[in-house]
Design a binder for these strands. Sequence first.
DNA 1: CAAAAACTGCGTAAGTGATACGCAGAAAGT
DNA 2: ACTTTCTGCGTATCACTTACGCAGTTTTTG
Lengths: 253, 253
Amino acid sequence: MDQRTGTGLPASFELAWGVREQPNKGPKRGLSLDRIIATAIAVADAEGLRAVSMGRVATELGAAPMSLYRYVATKDELLTLAADAAYGPPPDVPLPGEDWRSALARWARAERDGLRARRWILQIPISGPPTTPNAVAWMDRALRCVEGTGLDAGERMGVLLLVTGFVRSNVLIESQIVEAMEAAGQPAETRLDGYGKRLAAVADRARFPALHAVIDTGVLDEESGDENEDFDFGLDRVLDGIEALIGTRSLRP
Amino acid sequence: MDQRTGTGLPASFELAWGVREQPNKGPKRGLSLDRIIATAIAVADAEGLRAVSMGRVATELGAAPMSLYRYVATKDELLTLAADAAYGPPPDVPLPGEDWRSALARWARAERDGLRARRWILQIPISGPPTTPNAVAWMDRALRCVEGTGLDAGERMGVLLLVTGFVRSNVLIESQIVEAMEAAGQPAETRLDGYGKRLAAVADRARFPALHAVIDTGVLDEESGDENEDFDFGLDRVLDGIEALIGTRSLRP
DNA sequence: CAAAAACTGCGTAAGTGATACGCAGAAAGT
DNA sequence: ACTTTCTGCGTATCACTTACGCAGTTTTTG
């Protein structure tokens, strides 16, 4: 099922795009790519990415693992498609008359929401630039937000990569913290109060003065009350930086 | 070998930090954590991350796979330590009297250089915030760059996360492109000239107008002549955004 | 209508990988 | 000398991905 045709994409991707003709010979299919993908997502949602194996997905479908290979060439391919479907369609941005900053911020928040709901997406090894339908749709929407700002095509792409990179990075780091806190179900007498204290136990104060200055304030030992604070901080910096660039173009939407 | 003590870190991490006492009974060790880590790195450097297995590392060391478990509790632990060692020590920033922006930019570039030399680092699943020696050292150095700028501890951490997130994301995206180009060794007659063309073959122009506007310019079909261009663009945006924030603090280094 | 072609599902199998368990021997402590 | 701790590793289990090919289904072709 790795029959690449004129599009250069794997056949399963063409299926996802709806540009591949259905076979017209052979028995009726008992499976479908959509069902396989949906099942992979359900397993990941319930038990995390590591639980997603070809065998597991097949079992959930009441099929044999090898039959999945009629639809996807490799497990990696299935995971890529699962991530794409899990992303879902992009937000409706920009609204008519909406300024670029507001639109892009909404886009970023929507991506963040989606990733936080399905953190396993970020664990999927990616082996190429986005070529799946939803990923591409999200790209288009972000690019629309910065059209008419005076940025050239390369810069618009740069902005897209910057913002999406920030979002994914932010959620990834948050996920790491969430995971560490869940893993903190260690024997009670060995459990430290937080990350900062753990660091302080091994990191020499004389050698890491700036880090200790931060640890001493306690910010590394507790979650901030507002779960959006870190994200908003970073997003504002990014948008400020983009705004500075757009300002140099003397063009406003 | 998952004997957590007062630091709350895995024993192998304590070894990496040099805060774990060496056992004083039993036969002389034929292996060492450093050698195991170095071997894992050598394999990853030569053949990529997927080639790194406990069996492969053991074979390279002339040992049995199970003996590695005297030193690390899991393969994930080994990979985390390998990534840390591969990162190496941080750059010497800030220089005396160096302004925050220059220092932070140098820090970012150094991280980028390291990651580009060893792209496999970005493929390692990470399951918690940094607790290994070099990672922590890099953190400290970045924090030093923004000390004295008027940012509070939380904001300094936010800046660190923003910059490192940007660097890693930038290199990851670049790696995806590099990988796709290497994978483009497909049958010649099915090979398109570039990513943009592949997208154009499936992405409907009416549905994705902003994306097509970018594709039409050709920027998605060729590598830019300057391999630093994308990175510098993003870094400048990020630094501009941070600069805007620091400006509101009315404090200058 | 029969044969050929294409397709579907899946049984069997091979190879690989991570890691649990426990043995035997080495070295230090009592 | 005996006990304790540690090291290396043989054996084994379980799980996973995917190659190969068989048998049956369905459409197309002559």
